[in-house]
Design a protein around this nucleic acid. Structure first.
Lengths: 225, 225
DNA sequence: ACCGCTATTAGCCATCTGGCTAGGGAGAAA
DNA sequence: TTTCTCCCTAGCCAGATGGCTAATAGCGGT
């Protein structure tokens, strides 16, 4: 937590973000003698993984949403070649689901892009020191988001169920997929409908999107054009 | 299109983005003697509108997604106090819908944040010169996005129908709301299902979210906590 | 031990859904 | 003109949905 001492060797960073402007901004910000040094940059996940062994940065700042393989996927793959890598996820989203995905995939920290500079610096230092910082705005946002529905967040089981509803599965199929009876599936769907204040499953998944419980899977794949 | 001459007076800019890091990056990037000058910055829409008259920037770089009032809303309000303001929208999204919203609200240009520096510079110059540049990645992305579904984008009527499906309306209600018969409503729903390759209306709206045809209405409102 | 929450199963039933087939009219493109 | 697409309407039907009530069981907190 202490301010950077001139005596401390700089924390060596790799930046991965497909927004060139953001990357340049970060590089500029972090290369201003505050105890950081940007040793590598990449605008996509594959390159980042290729660059890692060459530079062995202390901490990697990794954007969640990128074209090609996204941040979470990049993280997973990076973990295979560098299990000890310290990765701080950067994101524009403040949804709890994104954070959960990132942390589950093995992120060492999670910071939204709307943080102030100091928060970012602190987060990087904390990751470097072995902590697992999570941007406070995430916590602040994610709680009321669900609380505001007038309701309860869904139970784990119910979340599985919405995810399947989203894919167009019927109650019968949901039951089969989860290894439970159709009746139970219906009961969970009913729970979801009530908690999300929806009149049918269609509105329920729309609400789930609104609340950030479900995320649009951008199917763009950036084809060859 | 010409490279910046030293003789040209700099284009005076206002930056509006709630991502402090991005803002700092832009400021740094644009303040490097390339013919731009950042005269004002803000991390929210209200402040931006308040700052405008004081600085009368030549071009305003406005982020689409911000907490509080978003970019489009900011743009609309700004237009009321400064109808001639030149505004270049900046966004992380490459969805055609977002672009349409921005341009409809009176944006002078639209650029995704994953552009290279030069493209951004060019876009700013073009807006300043009275053009209406649109980031090429938007066009490239948005076309195949819909084409990739195997299909056609939805007809206007069908889009109205998905929007209603999303709200949980039944075919009967959709018919009543649109002043058409239930049968016709069903026909439109069928069209949507086919075009979005969905097995039921629930999956259809999920797909619509995936494709950017529907946007999550973030109901967060950022309460006091 | 009791209570509350979650997960599980079950039956009944009015309504809704989506697929099928089969029309007609209006405007735009070839 | 012909053809195409979009928009509108219609009936039939098997299957799915969501509301209702009711019961059992595990788990964690008081």
């Amino acid at each position: 937590m202490g301010p950077p001492k001139a005596s401390t060797p700089p924390i060596r960073l790799m930046l991965v973000d497909d927004h060139a402007v953001m990357r340049a901004g970060l590089a500029n910000l972090l290369g201003s003698g505050l105890g950081f040094e940007v040793v590598a940059q990449s605008d996509d996940g594959e390159t980042a993984i290729r660059l890692w062994p060459k530079f062995k940065p202390d901490v990697c700042l990794l954007d969640m949403t990128m074209h090609g393989i996204d941040g979470v996927e990049t993280l997973s793959r990076l973990r295979k070649v560098a299990p000890a890598a310290r990765v701080l996820m950067l994101t524009s989203s403040d949804s709890a689901e994104d954070m959960a995905r990132a942390m589950k995939a093995g992120a060492n920290g999670y910071v939204t892009k709307n943080v102030q500079h100091k928060e970012l610096f602190d987060a990087i230092r904390e990751v470097h020191a072995g902590g697992r910082p999570v941007s406070s705005s995430t916590i602040i946002e994610s709680r009321p988001t669900t609380a505001e529905t007038g309701g309860s967040p869904l139970t784990p089981r119910e979340i599985e169920v919405v995810a399947l509803m989203r894919e167009g599965f019927t109650n019968q199929e949901i039951g089969r997929l989860l290894g439970i009876s159709t009746h139970t599936a219906k009961a969970h769907v009913a729970g979801v409908l009530e908690k999300l204040n929806a009149s049918d499953r269609t509105q329920a998944v729309a609400r789930a999107f609104d609340l950030g419980l479900l995320k649009a899977a951008h199917l763009q794949g950036r084809p060859k054009i």
